[in-house]
Each structure stands twice: as C-alpha cells, then as structure tokens.
Amino acid sequence: MEPEVVHAELVLPTHLSFKRIQMYEKYPKGQSRGRHWKHLKQIIQAENYQNYPPNEPNYVNIESPPSMHPCKRICDITGYEAPYYDPRTGLRYANADIFKLIRSLPNEYVQRYLALRNAAVVLK
C-alpha cells in the first residue's frame, strides 16, 4: 500500500479487536455464498402486514396515499408549464419551439426524459 493511503487509514482493517466475530470468520474467503440478505420488498412480504390489526401503525400502512391535488403538468424538457402533449413521443411540452426540439430528439433521449417520470417503455 502507498504511504499516503496507509497514513490516511483509508482501508478498513480486516481484524478489529473489539469484534467477537471477525468479518473473515463470518464470510470466509473463497467460499461462494448466495445472497444472504433480502430486498426491502421481500422483508415487507415476510412481515405479513396483512395479518396485523389495521389500526396499529406499521411500515406499510403509514405510507402516504396518492395525491388528491390535480397534477401540475410541466414541460419535460424545460420545466415550464406544459399545456400540450405530444402523442407520438409521449412528452409534454410548453410551446412550438420545444415541440420542434422534441420531434428532432433521438428516441434514446425521449426515453430518458420519459424515464425521469417513470413513464418510459420498459422492455422485460
């Protein structure tokens, strides 16, 4: 290791005296191990929240409901108020100049703009 790296103590030591089980004991090297953690979705599913009493707060039922306000529509490119919608690309736009721009955009960029608001075409 380079001296400045050692000096900054950048790298976490593999052995720490205050631990009762070291990292290398828990996850031995060279031993293949599958994914040993669950995604949040799996955690929530395993929790069986549907069996819980509904009046008790839990991780799932404290989520906010969908908004009741009318959605403000903004231009995907500029962020201005967008009265128009382009049915070909699916983008919202503010005026004729931006319409010209979005029609000249390559599809990749259109999809990236749509992906910003989670409206892109996702191929599975």
Binding site: S64, P65, P66, S67, M68, I74, R117, N118, A119
Partner: peptide
C-alpha cells in the same frame, strides 16, 4: 412527487 413517477402526496398534503 408524481413528477418523478412516485404517486404519493407531497409535503404540504
């Protein structure tokens, strides 16, 4: 939040 595709209420709501 729906501007980035999250369909939930915003801070004020």
């Amino acid at each position: 939040p729906n501007w980035i595709g999250i369909d939930q209420a915003g801070l004020d709501e």
